[in-house]
């Protein structure tokens, strides 16, 4: 690896001082992306800051205002956290798809988010849950809707000196569920050809959709919401026909490229299939 300075702060304030310093300062969580990127020169760093020992970044807690997940918390812990297992199932689905078990033991949720890969598996799941990113710098903290967090492939809206502290997912309402699926040619250590995360909240008395969220990975420069598909769903009864209409509408939000993993045409077809399937899984999960 190229040379860099290394720091391992144990408090958020110490970390913020380090991130405010001149030069390229990069956060290390599990290192499963950044170490490889540093080795191969795809990212550079004057200083690497291991943020895993900062208590705020290890938070994993369900409170009155939502599920708080510290940016450095590893994916295995998250996927095994009882509220995630029972309610935030799209997040569990996606966490358990990343890399392999050995990677999940290391990789942090905030790392997957800040790496900002168009294919980042947890991101559609988080977007489908209306997740908010809590960001800190020496001048204070601010909240950013995760849908406004991504600026391009590998790029976020974080400013110099800012770090992601935690992700907050709103409390789950009754009769709601989420799901994430991706398509890959094999079951592990691969990158999504397309990923889709859905969230549905139903009115149980008439089966109409109160709220729908659909987000897609690997079909645009950043993970994207499929807003047209959400609009198709909301206010209408969740029938097979409606799911099909939403699946078709989701394709409007996809602007995929053709690359080694799949053609643009193939990806558009996958958007339809995965949207349909995740909506069906949400319905099954709501109905128990």
């Amino acid at each position: 690896m190229p040379e860099f300075d290394f720091a391992q702060p144990t408090s958020l304030n110490d970390a913020l001082d380090l991130f405010a310093a001149d030069g390229e300062v990069r956060a290390l969580v599990g290192g499963t992306d950044i170490v490889d990127q540093l080795k191969t020169g795809r990212r550079n760093a004057d200083m690497v800051v291991d943020v895993k020992r900062i208590p705020e970044l290890q938070r994993l807690e369900l409170t009155d205002d939502g599920l708080h997940i510290g940016a450095a918390r590893n994916l295995t812990d998250i996927a095994e956290f009882p509220p995630v297992v029972s309610d935030y199932r799209g997040l569990a689905d996606s966490s358990l798809l990343i890399g392999s078990w050995q990677i999940q033991n290391r990789a942090g949720l905030g790392g997957n988010v800040c790496n900002a890969a168009p294919s980042g598996d947890t991101i559609p799941a988080l977007l489908s849950h209306d997740t908010v990113a809590v960001v800190a710098s020496k001048s204070g903290t601010r909240e950013i809707a995760l849908s406004d967090f991504f600026a391009g492939p590998g790029q976020t809206v974080l400013q110099k000196g800012e770090i992601l502290v935690e992700l907050v997912l709103p409390l789950m309402q009754e009769n709601s569920a989420s799901s994430y699926l991706r398509f890959i040619p094999r079951n592990e250590m691969d990158i999504a050809v397309v990923g889709a995360g859905s969230f549905v909240q139903l009115n149980p008395s008439n089966n109409t959709v109160l709220k729908a969220r659909i987000a897609l990975a690997s079909v645009a420069p950043t993970p994207v919401r499929a807003r047209a598909a959400e609009e198709v769903l909301e206010g209408n009864a969740l029938t097979d026909d409606l799911i099909e209409m939403a699946a078709v509408a989701a394709v409007e939000s996809a602007t995929p490229i053709t690359d080694v993993r799949g053609s643009a045409e193939y990806r558009r077809e996958l958007v339809k299939v995965l949207t349909r399937r995740t909506l069906g899984i949400c319905r099954d999960r709501i109905n128990g």
Partner: peptide
């Protein structure tokens, strides 16, 4: 050397971890 193949796996605090991508 990039965390894909598993040959470098060790345990850190009992958890299977790729040592080739662990600083």
């Amino acid at each position: 050397g990039e965390g894909n193949c598993g040959a470098c796996t060790v345990l850190i605090d009992g958890e299977a971890t790729r040592s080739c991508i662990t600083p």
